[in-house]
């Protein structure tokens, strides 16, 4: 591969060879493309099998219903890209919705509550990140403790669901862009999409974003290369905490309530979405766009299960089976393409 021969040897740069003749997508995009393709296949199957499946509201509701998950999963993407994991996000949703509801009930203005709640999430993330980085505690355990803590504090504040009557909140819950009656996109979905856009830009175009990938690739090397490993690592957990808090706000807005039981299992949904979107759990490879597709896949599975109107245990089986089918297909597609 190194040019030392006297005659110019052919084909020196192996990976680029053969690129001109046939279109070969960059190997790193393959998982995302596979997810996209399968998502389309799934939609088509739904459209063929169920009446009204092709109604535009089905797709738009996917975004509206999963806005909070999308925001949370974006934060999770950063964490997983560094090779870490954040189990606290579901509990942070519980905590932030409870805190928000309690403060609003106490008569705090929305303009103060929102930054306060976001700060709570960010600080919790910061704390977990610091423990992970400085004391070398495993992310799984540090964030598990964070999960206990967040949900525990939420329970301490209030064990019951707290309704939110604040005008700003109920207003946001109703805010939407209506295309035609019954076909609309909610403000919260737009917030989620904005978060996605910002995240994509940060990951692709900023030094912080690239450092995230480097740490996921090889943290020891990243350190030896003189990258700010500590700052970046703490940064992603802070970001994830912030995103979870934002997700919690969105959740409290769409449900107009705060409850310590909110967001149970959201961490697993978020992890699943990230991984389905083609991000490697070992870190260093994947895209935010993939995560968005992952969230849509989970949403689509739920939609199909709803259309089939199954009882709860069959629904669980169906979700499992669809998840399985999807992951295996994705795996096979990716393997073949590589």
């Amino acid at each position: 591969m190194i040019d030392v021969s006297t005659t110019p040897a052919t084909n020196k740069s192996g990976p680029a060879a053969g690129r001109r003749r046939t279109y070969r997508p960059n190997a790193q995009y393959i998982p995302v493309l596979a997810t996209l393709t399968l998502l389309i296949v799934m939609y088509t199957l739904g459209a063929v099998n169920y009446e009204n499946f092709t109604h535009p509201s089905v797709i738009l509701n996917l975004f509206t219903d999963n806005a909070f998950l999308m925001v949370v999963a974006v934060g999770m993407t950063f964490v997983i890209l560094t090779g870490g994991i954040d189990l606290s996000v579901g509990a942070v949703i519980a905590l932030t919705s409870t805190v928000a509801a309690t403060l609003l009930q106490a008569g705090w203005p929305a303009g103060v509550v929102i930054p306060t709640v976001l700060l709570v999430g960010g600080v919790l993330g910061l704390g977990m990140g610091a423990v992970i980085h400085f004391f070398k505690v495993e992310p799984f355990i540090a964030t598990l403790a964070g999960m206990f803590l967040a949900r525990g504090v939420a329970l301490l504040i209030d064990q019951n669901s707290i309704p939110i009557t604040n005008g700003f909140w109920t207003g946001l819950a109703e805010a939407r862009i209506v295309f035609e009656p019954g076909v609309y996109i909610s403000a919260m979905a737009l917030v989620a999409l904005a978060v996605v856009a910002v995240a994509a830009v940060v990951l692709a175009w900023s030094r912080f974003g690239r450092n995230v990938y480097a740490i996921g690739g090889n943290a020891d090397s990243a350190l030896l290369m003189g990258l700010p490993v500590g700052r970046t690592r703490i940064g992603v957990y802070t970001l994830s905490g912030f995103c979870a808090a934002l997700g919690g706000l969105i959740y409290s807005i769409t449900t107009t309530s705060g409850y310590a039981g909110h967001g149970t299992g959201t961490e697993l949904d978020a992890i699943a979405a990230v991984v389905i979107g083609g991000v490697l759990l070992t870190g260093g490879s994947g895209y935010v766009l993939g995560t968005v597709l992952g969230v849509l896949v989970l949403g689509m599975i739920n939609t199909i299960v709803n259309f089939q109107s199954l009882n709860s245990w069959w629904a669980r089986m169906a979700i499992g089976v669809l998840l399985f089918a999807f992951i295996v297909l994705q795996r096979l597609v990716t393997r073949r393409a590589k």
Binding site: W313, G320, V328
Partner: peptide, 26 residues
């Protein structure tokens, strides 16, 4: 199949409870 363990076992985590309820008819 080479699926990442956390996701591979997540499938059974979700479907398994369904299976258990299926066995006991809910």
């Amino acid at each position: 199949l080479g699926i990442q363990p956390i996701i591979a076992t997540l499938i059974l985590m979700v479907a398994g409870r369904g299976l258990a309820q299926l066995i006991t008819s809910g």
